[in-house]
Design a protein around this nucleic acid. Structure first.
Length: 287
DNA sequence: CCTTGTGTTCTCCG
DNA sequence: CCGGAGAACACAAG
């Protein structure tokens, strides 16, 4: 699942690879992935360039050289953006389940072809993601729904406290809600709660001051480290070069149910449902 | 049936 | 009856 660290990795990679390259041709192989009429989508992109690429939460924002046009891409669960200079792509590591040897694959739904011959592929096994070109007004409307960026300087402990103090919902639901903090998904919600030693089903406003501080530090720490290791590859996530992220080896609870807790070395990691999502935790280390 | 991200709908409460 | 909060549900497809 591409969450903040994974999307950030793609943004950083693409910014150093495709800025100001002329888009010669765009191929839409699956219409439902593109939210605009196919014809206007292609027209807006062809002969344009990407001036800048950024993200807000898990949403990628490509600023086009055409005035007031922005390409938004959401990867949802299994979306990939892979850039290659030729059609062959070598997947980092081994044991990949998908036949990613050559692109386009059967999961390639949109292809951007640049005038230097390089290509950017949008692949999506489950086809939950989308591409959408919007104007600045629409973009603003979309962006105002997002909460604070957890790695920004203005995400302070004070700010975090003020967000959390009046929330009756459980702390995991709070972390997953993009309108409070943007970019945390199921993996990093479980990992930050484990790091902070807090049970996922605790109500947010029941956290003591020392716990709020622990969780705040955990969010910064875990997300920063995950960005540093270029995200977590579980099944489908790949960076813009088609390589896996290497944060998997640092996961303490996510997908470790039934295995021995790496902190207490005693308790087995449990799995329950919280906020409608699979949730892993250690009964001994999280209170 | 499961998986997760997100948008919508429903319910509760003051 | 309204609005907000939060929970529940719906949907995507393999």
């Amino acid at each position: 699942m591409p969450e903040l660290p994974e999307v950030q990795t793609i943004v950083t990679d693409l910014n150093s690879r495709i800025l100001n390259k002329k888009i010669k041709k765009v191929e839409v192989r699956l219409k439902k992935i593109v939210k605009n009429p196919t014809k206007s989508f292609i027209q807006d992109l062809q002969k344009s360039t990407f001036k800048n690429i950024r993200r807000r939460g898990k949403l990628l924002i490509f600023e086009l050289s055409v005035k007031n046009k922005y390409l938004l891409i959401h990867l949802k669960m299994t979306g990939q953006l892979i850039y290659c200079k030729n059609n062959k792509i070598t997947v980092g590591g081994h044991g990949m389940s998908k036949d990613m040897g050559e692109l386009p694959s059967k999961y390639t739904h949109v292809i951007f072809m640049f005038s230097d011959g390089s290509k950017l592929f949008y692949n999506d096994l489950r086809r939950f993601g989308y591409l959408h070109i919007v104007d600045d007004k629409k973009l603003e409307k979309i962006l105002e729904k997002f909460g604070i960026e957890p790695l920004d300087k203005d995400f302070t402990l004070k700010k975090f406290k003020s967000l959390i103090e009046n929330k009756k919902m459980n702390i995991k639901a709070f972390l997953l809600n993009q309108k409070f903090i943007a970019g945390i998904g199921n993996i990093y919600a479980d990992e930050t709660l484990f790091d902070a030693g807090i049970l996922p089903n605790r109500s947010a406003n029941s956290l003591k001051e020392v716990e709020v501080k622990k969780l705040y530090k955990a969010i910064k720490k875990v997300l920063k480290k995950a960005v540093q290791y270029r995200g977590t590859t579980f099944n489908d996530y790949l960076d813009a070069d088609g390589n896996k992220g290497s944060f998997l080896k640092f996961l303490k609870v996510y997908h470790r149910e039934g295995k021995k807790c790496l902190r207490c070395n005693k308790e087995k990691i449990k799995k329950i449902k919280v906020a409608g999502r699979g949730t892993r935790y250690c009964e001994k280390c999280q209170k």
